[in-house]
Design a protein around this nucleic acid. Structure first.
Length: 504
RNA sequence: GCCCCUGUCGUCUAGCCCGGCCUAGGACAUCGCCCUUUCAAGGCGGCAACACGGGUUCGAAUCCCGUCGGGGGCGCCA
């Protein structure tokens, strides 16, 4: 347990995903916790690719994985793409290593060949389950003499290699987040360490890799707790000292089942596309099961590194809350400089065709101002184009009920009539003119406040809600002169349209 | 079924290890008010939890036992 304090040795942790698709937020959290721990302790963070499942592993998945992790803001000191002194960092390139130690275990009589067929084993398992026992391998092949086993193998009989596990006793370990955990050896059968196709089994490969890579702390998901005793047994058989373990609780969906697609976005990639900031996602992920001693919740990566503490990680599963993620994202967006917001928002606006691929400096300048105003209260960047439709779309024929109601009152009609009359013949329009005119109307009719501004907003935007007009008018007037692919109508044009549309 | 882990507001959690400072704190969500040229944002305030049952103790969210709930595992997947 106190390997942490008692040694001056450098802390080495790893994140070891299998490249079988896009990286899930649950795994991302594991990666983040490892990274935070390493960075805070001045340790080493290793990326290792567990690609021994030939069926599911794809090279492109490794690229996705690296891309996602980098996007999150994580970096590693050793890994398949950056090298290091403990390589190779792909399990598929470490096969000789696994074979070497398997042979050693075989030679020392700590492991043996098993000729049982999968069908046979399946039958035994079912029988055990039916009797209410935990399915444990019978040890049938345990005592086949090595010579005989070699002969059968030479004859072409497929064989897996199993580790011999003591029949009695307990295996225990002190988990950094869960405390003391122990397992009864009676319930642990001899695990397969090398499959009959020659590939190492997961429980074996991790041990070889973690040990050879000098990993001091294994921080991983709770789903590995029950693998831990088997792995410890392997460390023992090899005469190695096991690392310190820390098992993180699972991330669940709203209905308390494992977070999956049906709960919404679950891959890092999806969040990135939606316009969730990496910092916000890290911030949120860090708070899934962990909280800093002081109450601040909106934290940047460096602050997380400073405050992070594995022993403060909670042991119970956490439900992924999109609302809170969005709130954090809003907070992080707010902290961004205007240039950065523009840079991040641009692709979304281009994608929806509001903005062309070529953007003039004047358009850029306008966009920066518009984004600064419209981003308020937006959960993620993908929602921004929707917000921009306030500026780009004007459809007086499609007023909603609320807008009709506002514009339908006697008072509203009076205001609109006056406004239209006072703007008739104007060649130019801006907020100063608007303010002057509304001032006059106020004086002449006595209408003020909401009664005055609501109808005017409906007239200028064709909707019941939107921006304050002192922000809206300058944006629209300037935007109207900028030749966007989809043009913005000036206020005077809008007024004309609404006039004909409503027959005023 | 068996094994392991876990159980504080709807959600994330603080407090638990070292019982009294807990009338259980914060954040998201929600509700209300304020601000206001709507909405939002912001400010202020409200609602809201120690799973249950037994102990131990002068005193228990905190310690012990049991029950129930939730999760994970039980692969020649990782």
């Amino acid at each position: 347990m106190d390997k942490l304090n008692q040694t001056a040795e450098i802390i080495r942790v790893r994140f070891a995903p299998s490249p079988t698709g896009y990286i899930h937020v649950g795994n991302a959290r594991t990666a983040l916790f490892n990274w935070l721990f390493a960075r805070q302790k001045g340790g080493v963070f290793v990326l290792r690719v567990e690609d021994t499942d030939i069926e599911r592993s794809r090279e492109e998945y490794e690229r996705n994985l690296i891309q996602d992790l980098r996007w999150l803001g994580l970096d590693w000191d050793e890994g398949p793409d950056v090298g290091g002194n403990y390589g190779p960092y792909r399990q598929s390139e470490r096969l000789e290593l696994y074979h070497k130690y398997a042979k050693q275990l075989l030679d020392e009589g700590k492991a043996y060949y098993c000729f049982c067929s999968p069908e046979e084993l399946e039958k035994e398992r079912e029988a055990a389950l039916a009797e209410g026992r935990m399915p444990v391998y019978s040890g049938k092949c345990r005592n086949i003499p090595r010579k005989e086993a070699e002969k059968r193998r030479a004859a072409g009989e497929p064989a897996a290699i199993r580790l011999k596990v003591p029949d009695e006793g307990i295996v225990e370990f002190d988990d950094l987040v869960r405390g003391h955990v122990e397992f009864d050896l009676k319930l642990i059968g001899d695990p397969i360490i090398v499959r009959s196709n020659g590939m190492p089994a997961y429980n074996y490969a991790v041990v070889i890799d973690d040990a050879l890579m000098n990993i001091t702390h294994v921080v991983r998901g709770e789903d590995h707790v029950s693998n831990t005793p088997r792995q410890i047994l392997l460390y023992r058989a090899l005469g190695w000292q096991p690392p310190v373990f820390a098992h993180l609780s699972m991330v669940m969906g709203k209905d308390n089942t494992r977070l999956s697609k049906r709960h919404g976005a679950t891959s890092v990639d999806q969040f990135r596309r939606e316009g969730i900031l990496a910092e916000a996602l890290c911030n949120y992920l860090a708070f899934l099961g962990w909280s800093p001693p002081e109450g601040h919740e909106v934290l940047r990566l460096e602050e997380l590194v400073r405050l992070f503490d594995l022993s403060r990680v909670s042991r119970s599963a956490a439900i992924f809350d999109y609302e809170k993620l969005h709130w954090l994202n809003r907070q992080h967006i707010k902290m961004l400089p205007a240039e950065k917001k523009l840079e991040l928002a641009l692709p979304y606006l281009q994608e929806t065709g509001l903005v062309g691929t070529e953007v003039t400096p004047a358009q850029m300048d306008w966009l920066k101002k518009a984004i600064e105003i419209l981003i308020e209260g937006v959960d993620k960047f993908s929602e921004l184009p929707q917000k921009f439709s306030l500026l780009f779309d004007f459809e007086p024929e499609k007023l909603d009920e609320e807008a009709r109601e506002i514009i339908g009152s006697e008072l509203a009609k009076k205001v609109l009539a006056a406004f239209i009359q006072k703007t008739a013949g104007l060649q130019e329009f801006n907020y100063e003119i608007f303010a002057r005119i509304t001032g006059e109307i106020k004086k002449e009719t006595g209408v003020k406040g909401k009664d005055l501004y609501h109808p005017l907003r409906v007239a200028l935007t064709a909707r019941a809600s939107g921006l304050e007009l002192d922000k809206f008018i300058p944006l629209v007037e300037e935007g109207a002169r900028l030749n966007f692919p989809k043009s913005i109508l000036s206020c005077l044009v809008r007024l004309n349209r609404i006039k004909t549309s409503l027959n005023l």
